[in-house]
Design a protein around this nucleic acid. Structure first.
Lengths: 142, 142
DNA sequence: CTTTGTGCAAACGATTTGCAGGATG
DNA sequence: CATCCTGCAAATCGTTTGCACAAAG
């Protein structure tokens, strides 16, 4: 998984004539090892925790490059917050209203329903279910 | 429908100690009569089409007031685009990748599935299915 | 040595805010 | 006449861009 993922960035960037820079690699690796779809701000502080790795502008540039080659996508779950995700496979999201915890919901969880429930005429190509509610921990602590 | 809807703004704003100003009313009425969840920019040009009705700042203020009292909600379908919707009932969205056409999908279309398919522990309170694809017109003209 | 990328700082666009004047209760 | 709201203009925040220097092919 980690091998094929780092392969992915090298192969894919090269295939698009883009270089595999330390900054791009660091951004992608960080997205891969996190499950919480961080914001640019979170990426910035996380990457530069132990010494300077990348500037803010370069993180934006890197994310743009990674998105253009299809390694990364944006995730819109909250108003005014843009998150980034190295899982470009179709999947859905659960977001805890209390703690903000975000977790992925596998695509096949809702797989069968969209095709069968949409009105005729609309041709679905992609869909995402965004569920908001309470996660286990927050339900318990109430 | 239109009677109960305009009642809604008068009653709801007053119940929250807010005034029903021409600008707030115009914003809400415009959202009600549209089905396409406009952006602030679209609201601004639409409202001021035939003479000045509201400034940009006041549209933002009005939308904030209307959101606070629960008459309006934001809709996030595209990156970097914030839309507003006077339909605060739960519902889903279809967005045409080609022409940008947006249409509502009734909530009961997917009603039965979220409750039954989520993993135990997560307590759903609200969910939205965002479908992207091709609408009738765009499929035909291809 | 040519091309591509970084990082700073300035620019930008969408949204928010401060404030003086206007409308409302 | 006290309160709330509008509208302008300035401020703010996230993101993008221009440009000089650095790194990679």
């Amino acid at each position: 998984m980690s091998i094929s993922s780092t392969d992915a960035i090298v192969d894919t960037l090269k295939a698009h004539g883009l270089r595999v820079t330390p900054q791009r690699f660091a951004v992608y690796a960080n997205l891969l090892e996190r499950t919480d779809h961080p914001t640019v701000e979170q990426l910035l502080s996380d990457l530069n925790q132990a010494g300077p790795v990348s500037s803010q502008a370069t993180i934006y540039n890197s994310l743009q490059a990674l998105r253009e080659v299809g390694l990364v996508r944006e995730v819109l779950l909250e108003e005014g917050v843009v998150r980034y995700d190295a899982n470009v496979e179709q999947h859905h999201h659960f977001r805890c209203r209390q703690c903000g915890h975000i977790e992925d919901i596998p695509w096949n969880t809702f797989h069968e329903l969209v095709e069968s429930h949409l009105r005729p005429g609309l041709q679905p190509e992609r869909y995402e279910v965004t569920v908001t509610g309470c996660c286990d921990r927050c339900s318990e602590s109430q």
